[in-house]
């Protein structure tokens, strides 16, 4: 190769090298930003999905707790349709007592106050009423996810309470924390 061609090659190499260094520096920032952004996005999405399960569990425990209190109230106090109505309203309306009952269960489970408060901040209490069905003489009350307690009345008097669903209540079958998926650099 003659001297002139060598010179051209050196010049071309230098130009390519400079261009590559510029590209390298530009992409470096881009890759770093993209990697951080995608990791954060995917982490947030997973944590949100995960937390939602605990939110659902908290609200289910609220319904579960209210349902037990209602069953107990109906069996220990006046066994009338009117008492059912007033007991239900009193139980649903006493939000402090609802929180206390849920918190007691969580504390008993070994969940500390900070974690409880974190879940409560997102979950609050179960929304709306637990009364699912209110036909004359037949009432159905939600007692958590996939759980229903049935009260039947005859001439305004309590005839039967079927709370077998509460006794068999098992959230492990319905609520699960999914394992995290693979990270994708997109």
């Amino acid at each position: 190769m003659d001297k002139k061609k060598m010179k051209i090659l050196v010049v071309v190499d230098v130009v390519i090298l400079v261009a590559l260094i510029v590209i390298l520096m530009t992409l470096k920032g881009g890759y770093e930003e993209q990697a951080k952004r995608t990791a954060n996005e995917q982490e947030s999405a997973y944590l949100e999905k995960n937390t939602q399960v605990l939110v659902e569990q908290w609200r289910s425990v609220d319904q579960y707790s209210m349902a037990w209190k209602l069953v107990y109230s109906m069996l220990s106090g006046a066994k009338t349709e009117a008492a059912f109505k007033s007991n239900l309203a009193a139980i649903e309306g006493d939000k402090d007592a609802r929180f206390k009952q849920i918190s007691h269960l969580y504390t008993g489970a070994g969940i500390n106050d900070a974690v409880q408060n974190g879940i409560y901040q997102k979950a609050g209490l179960a929304e709306g009423t637990i009364l699912l069905k209110n036909e004359k003489g037949n009432k159905e009350v939600a007692c958590g996810k996939n759980c229903v307690v049935k009260f039947s009345f005859a001439k305004g008097k309590l005839k039967n309470v079927d709370y077998s669903a509460l006794v068999q209540y098992n959230l492990a079958n319905t609520l699960k924390i999914e394992k995290p998926g693979e990270y994708h650099f997109e």
Partner: peptide, 24 residues
């Protein structure tokens, strides 16, 4: 970073879920 963060969340939340279910 993603694997460390999500694994910690998975472990912690699974534990809460299980402890509460056992308490129930």
């Amino acid at each position: 970073h993603y694997e460390a963060t999500t694994a910690k969340s998975f472990k912690g939340n699974s534990m809460v879920l299980e402890l509460v279910n056992n308490a129930i």
